[in-house]
Amino acid sequence: MAVVPAAETLDGLKDRFDLGVFVGDLALDEEVTSDDESLEGLQQELDNCKNDQEVANILASGIKLREYTKGVENNIRQIELDSIQDYIKESENLVSLHDQICDCDNILLQMETVLTGFQTEIGSISSEIKVLQEKSMDMGLKLKNRKAAESKLSKFVEDIIVPPRMIDIIVDGEVNDEYMKTLETLSKKIKFIDADPMVKSSKALKDVQPEVERLRQKAVSKIFEFVIQKFYALRKPKTNIQILQQSVLLKYKYTINFLKEHAKEIYAEVRTAYIDTMNKVLSAHFRAYIQALEKLQMDIATSTDLLGVETRSTGFIFSIGKEPLKTRPSVFALGERINILKEIDQPALIPHIAEAKSQKYSYEVLFRSLQKLLIDTATSE
């Protein structure tokens, strides 16, 4: 029988397996005939064990395979006996564990019964909740429709109703800021009645429309009287037109807008009256201003100042003496009058201030002042 040296490495053992060696060993230890065991497939199993580390270690140590197998079986048997002893020692604990498991089973069974009852009750509650949900959806839809109807109805009532306070202000109130706000509210109501065709077909309009029309007529009458009085104030002597326009007419300009929207004929009369008033007032002011400017004019040349004039006397008794010819060209010189081009945007002259200072101005300065005042007045209007 060939013996494998123990000093050979694991790789060498894997490459040098000899089937005869192992078969011979098996035959020497136990008489095994070919009838008892078959060696078919042994070589394939040995080839499969080449890469097994445990088998390689056994072969390297020189231990016979059957002896190693018996040792392993003995170890397993001993472990089995030890396990049985451990089980016997823990038998009381296992019995207690078994009892606890049985108790848990009973508790879980009771819980299952309770949960089954809960499931049944939840099923019935679910059906009730479904019914309540349907009722809630119906009620929500009804509430939504009622809110929409209430919103439209409240807006309609608010737009068409005429509060007693509005009637008192329009009829008996003075023209002030509160009166302006009330006029705006009345204007919205009139527009609402005229613009919406559904309002015209409503029965509520039959009760409200006469009152609204009377309020409109009263407001137009009061506005007309108020504005005409202010126009008359413009015609009074020594009236500051700009202050009256800005503090009164401009402040209450909505009254004119109200007439323009809801009383076009009265608006045309007011507009004509204003144009006539301002025409007379401004014409008088400009005439007085022109007369005052004429007093400030500086005489630079007269009708006798000509470019070509004879310097010597004609000898007649009534002949008028002339200045020497050398001073005559200065009359037509531009001089400092060209500075007027740099003062185009300066304010207009104030005649009484200039007259108090005894100042005189050339015709160009006076003309610019007049045109500046005219432009400012037209722009203001």
Rank of each mutant, 00 (worst) to 15 (best):
1 M>Q: 07
10 L>D: 07
11 D>E: 15
12 G>R: 11
17 F>S: 00
18 D>K: 09
20 G>V: 05
27 A>V: 06
32 V>F: 04
36 D>I: 07
38 S>Q: 06
39 L>P: 00
44 Q>P: 01
45 E>I: 05
49 C>N: 10
50 K>I: 08
51 N>E: 13
53 Q>E: 11
60 A>N: 15
75 N>F: 10
77 R>M: 08
77 R>N: 14
79 I>G: 07
80 E>T: 09
81 L>W: 06
85 Q>T: 04
86 D>W: 12
86 D>T: 04
87 Y>A: 15
90 E>K: 11
91 S>Q: 11
93 N>T: 07
96 S>N: 10
106 N>S: 13
109 L>Y: 14
109 L>Q: 15
110 Q>N: 08
110 Q>G: 01
111 M>E: 09
112 E>V: 00
113 T>P: 01
115 L>P: 03
118 F>I: 15
121 E>A: 12
122 I>R: 10
124 S>V: 10
126 S>T: 08
134 E>I: 09
134 E>R: 10
135 K>Y: 10
137 M>W: 06
141 L>F: 09
144 K>A: 13
144 K>C: 06
149 A>L: 12
149 A>Q: 15
155 K>M: 05
156 F>C: 03
157 V>Q: 15
164 P>R: 08
165 R>K: 02
165 R>F: 00
177 D>E: 14
181 K>D: 12
194 D>V: 06
199 V>W: 02
200 K>S: 03
207 D>N: 13
208 V>W: 00
210 P>Y: 03
213 E>W: 00
214 R>P: 01
215 L>D: 05
216 R>Q: 14
217 Q>L: 13
217 Q>V: 08
218 K>I: 12
218 K>D: 04
218 K>A: 12
219 A>G: 01
222 K>W: 08
223 I>V: 13
224 F>R: 15
228 I>P: 00
231 F>N: 07
234 L>A: 05
234 L>K: 02
235 R>K: 15
236 K>P: 00
239 T>A: 01
241 I>N: 00
246 Q>D: 14
250 L>K: 10
251 K>R: 15
252 Y>P: 04
257 N>E: 14
260 K>C: 05
261 E>M: 06
263 A>E: 07
263 A>V: 11
264 K>N: 05
264 K>Q: 10
268 A>K: 14
271 R>F: 03
273 A>P: 03
274 Y>M: 15
275 I>V: 13
279 N>H: 11
286 F>Y: 11
289 Y>W: 06
290 I>G: 02
290 I>L: 13
290 I>P: 00
291 Q>R: 09
291 Q>H: 09
293 L>M: 11
301 A>L: 13
305 D>P: 05
305 D>R: 04
315 G>Q: 02
318 F>Q: 07
318 F>V: 00
319 S>T: 08
323 E>C: 05
325 L>A: 11
326 K>G: 02
328 R>P: 01
332 F>R: 13
336 E>A: 11
342 K>E: 15
343 E>N: 11
344 I>W: 11
347 P>C: 02
354 A>N: 03
355 E>D: 05
355 E>G: 06
358 S>D: 12
362 S>V: 03
363 Y>I: 08
365 V>L: 02
366 L>T: 12
367 F>S: 04
369 S>G: 02
369 S>F: 02
371 Q>G: 01
371 Q>E: 12
371 Q>F: 05
374 L>E: 01
375 I>Y: 08
